[in-house]
């Protein structure tokens, strides 16, 4: 289990993260989301021990600064290190020196699935191919804690599928705890159990993705006459878009109850629209910036 208590970090006078509290149970796949510059990468660097944490980060009660703890952690940054003359095989050897249990078979399988030449210079690979090499390495290490920054960046849909399948297998077989930051929220929704949203330097929301999405409902309404914002007063509005007689509204609360309350306004047409994690994310982030009801 990863426990984060009172974690703060500043770059000079600029505060990036403020008093972050978070618990990630073992075997969880947690998505770390937030807008650009929210502090996702900084949080991952603090959790992995790259940055010195002000506050507490504990892996089963142990600090990531201890060498023993780090054996269980693998951090894959958004732009990983490699030397100019390195190949996938050489990278494997490099990581094998630190993670002796690094599994050659898993690495070879993934490299083969990605159709990469393990003897070719990594510098000559495209961004996505390099990402594939490091994903293969991360999965071959089979760490207890896997921290991935911008994990899907540069990957094509097929590679994403291979990656997601491999993560699921890893979690099932090794009970690995995965913390993964990405802007591909639809990908995260596919295989993450939980999420944490960082916004304005703090944890804005976290929890089960499905529950988080289910707490909101979206409707499209058509009225016979023009409507105004005041007509919807008293409703738990997350967002409201009025275009003359046509309204798109996102409400927080039980779907059926919201339907009943909207029906009371006598719309000519009322359709419930599907809402996904990405849309809830947008609403969550916008609400903190006063964009709601815009």
């Amino acid at each position: 289990m990863i426990e984060i208590k009172g974690l703060s970090h500043s770059f000079g006078t600029k505060e990036v993260l403020k008093n972050i509290d978070l618990t990630i149970p073992d075997g969880t796949v947690m998505g770390l989301v937030g807008i650009n510059g929210a502090g996702k990468s900084t949080l991952l660097r603090l959790i992995s021990g790259v940055y010195d944490a002000k506050g507490h980060v504990l892996y089963d009660g142990k600090s990531p600064n201890e060498e023993e703890t780090r054996k269980d952690i693998f951090f894959l940054p958004d732009d990983p290190y490699y030397t100019t003359a390195t190949t996938p095989n050489k990278l494997f050897d490099f990581y094998k020196t630190f993670y002796p249990d690094c599994d050659r078979a898993t690495f070879d399988t993934l490299i083969s699935k990605y159709q990469l030449d393990p003897k070719k210079n990594v510098r000559n690979f495209s961004k996505g191919m390099r990402r594939q090499v490091f994903i293969a390495l991360a999965l071959a290490v089979k760490p207890k804690y896997l921290l991935l920054d911008e994990a899907f960046d540069g990957l094509d849909p097929l590679s994403r599928k291979i990656f997601k399948d491999a993560i699921i297998t890893l979690v099932e077989e090794e009970n690995t705890t995965v913390l993964i930051s990405s802007h591909s929220l639809r990908e995260l929704e596919d295989f993450c159990d939980r999420f944490v949203l960082i916004d304005n330097n703090v944890v804005k929301s976290h929890g089960d993705i499905a529950e988080h999405v289910a707490r909101l409902c979206k409707f499209e309404l058509a009225f016979t006459e023009e409507v105004k914002q005041a007509d919807f007063a008293g409703l738990p509005i997350v967002s409201l878009d009025i275009k003359s007689r046509f309204v798109t509204i996102v409400l927080e609360g039980d779907k059926e109850k919201m339907r009943e309350r909207l029906s009371a306004l006598s719309p000519a047409v009322m359709d419930e629209m599907p809402l996904d994690f990405e849309e809830t994310f947008i609403h969550d982030v916008e609400s903190g910036r006063g964009y709601e009801n815009a």
Partner: peptide, 11 residues
């Protein structure tokens, strides 16, 4: 970018 790797390694 190099430190992201080196400082997270078990050493």
């Amino acid at each position: 970018r190099n430190l992201d790797c080196f400082y997270s390694l078990p050493i």
